[in-house]
Simulated scan of single mutants.
Amino acid sequence: MSTEAHPHEPHRAGTGQRLNWLRAGVLGANDGIVSVAALVVGVAGATTDSGALFTAGIAGLVGGAISMALGEYVSVSSQRDSERALIAKERRELRDMPEAELEELTGLYRARGLSDETARQVAVELTAHDALSAHLEIELHIDQDDLVNPWHAALSSAIAFTLGALLPLLAILLPPPDWRVPVTFAAVLIALAATGTLSAVLGGAPRLRAATRLVVGGALALLATWLIGTLLGTTVV
């Protein structure tokens, strides 16, 4: 029997990171759906003017997308800076005290369940092949060739938020005035159920529980802002 990995199995480097980006995209879309939906439904509670709804929706979409992109850029930049610092530190330690690092690597494999002899042999062979990569992988769980990119994170976050925000924006603008709020409620809750299910599938969590949390939370947010908009629309001159 061949010991080679099957070519169609997901053994490529970075698979976990790609799944994390996908989860982040789903969360970004959820943010866009809920935040912009709550905004336009609140405005719709106060007025039926399409211009006001459009202005509020676009402002929420643009502001939210920029905020999401900036937050993701800062967060991922900090993560990448930390990873680079750890790589530089490991490189110095391998240069200045190679024997101690070899013993450390041996101990790490011994802690994984290998015998002393096997752990030593594995450590020696990996050190001879690529000492830095060996230490980064087992000690720090870092792939120096697959560091996170803050620009990619910022762009994907902004796109995900924008795509999510377009749903409530269209739902509040396209129907007749009397149907705007009910249609937006229905569209948003269906979308949240779908994205909640998808996020559960990606994370291996119970689907119904994840979808229910999002739907209930989204419904409460929409109801609260609609009530506030209705109250202010009838009391503020």
Score class of each variant (00 low, 15 high):
Leu53Cys: 05
Val41Glu: 07
Ala119Ser: 11
Ala193His: 10
Phe185Lys: 05
Pro177Tyr: 08
Leu198Tyr: 12
Leu227Lys: 03
Leu227Ala: 14
Ser78Glu: 13
His135Phe: 04
Leu86Asn: 11
Ala5Glu: 14
Pro175His: 11
Met1Pro: 10
Thr234Asp: 11
Pro150Thr: 06
Ile66Ala: 14
Leu126Pro: 10
Asp178Ile: 10
Thr195Val: 10
Thr197Gly: 15
Arg110Val: 00
Leu169Thr: 04
Leu227Thr: 07
Gly60Phe: 07
Ala158His: 01
Leu114Val: 00
Ala186Val: 15
Leu174Trp: 14
Thr212Ser: 13
Arg110Phe: 00
Ile87Ser: 11
Asp96Tyr: 08
Gly218Glu: 05
Thr225Glu: 10
Ala85Cys: 04
Trp151Ser: 13
Leu222Ala: 02
Gly16Cys: 00
Phe54Asn: 04
Ser115Glu: 10
Thr184Trp: 12
Leu22Glu: 01
Val181Thr: 13
Leu214Lys: 13
Glu117Gly: 04
Ala153Gly: 08
Ala13Ile: 08
Val74Arg: 08
Thr235Cys: 03
Lys89Val: 08
Thr3Arg: 11
Glu125Met: 13
Gly164Gln: 05
Ala200Lys: 06
Val40Thr: 08
Leu170Met: 08
Ala153Ser: 15
Val43Ser: 04
Leu39Ser: 02
Arg112Asp: 00
Leu105Lys: 01
Arg91Asp: 12
Thr15Cys: 01
Asp178Cys: 00
Thr3Gln: 13
Gln79Met: 11
Leu173Trp: 14
Val148Leu: 13
Ala191Ser: 14
Val183Phe: 13
Val36Met: 01
Gln121Lys: 10
Leu167Ser: 00
Arg110Gly: 03
Glu125Ser: 13
Ala165Asn: 00
Leu105Gly: 07
Ala165Ser: 07
Asn30Leu: 06
Leu222His: 01
Pro176Tyr: 08
Leu19Tyr: 05
Arg120Pro: 05
Gly164Asp: 03
Ala154Phe: 06
Leu231Lys: 02
Leu61His: 03
Leu108Lys: 01
Leu39Thr: 10
Val43Asn: 05
Ser78Tyr: 07
Val181Leu: 09
Glu104Lys: 07
Arg12Ser: 11
Ala46Phe: 09
Arg91Pro: 02
Leu227Cys: 14
Val43Glu: 03
Ala200Cys: 05
Glu9Lys: 09
Arg120Asn: 12
Leu166Arg: 02
Glu4Val: 06
Val188Lys: 00
Val34Asp: 03
Ile142Asn: 01
Ile87Val: 15
Leu227Asp: 09
Thr197Arg: 09
Gly71Lys: 11
Ala219Cys: 09
Asp145Ser: 11
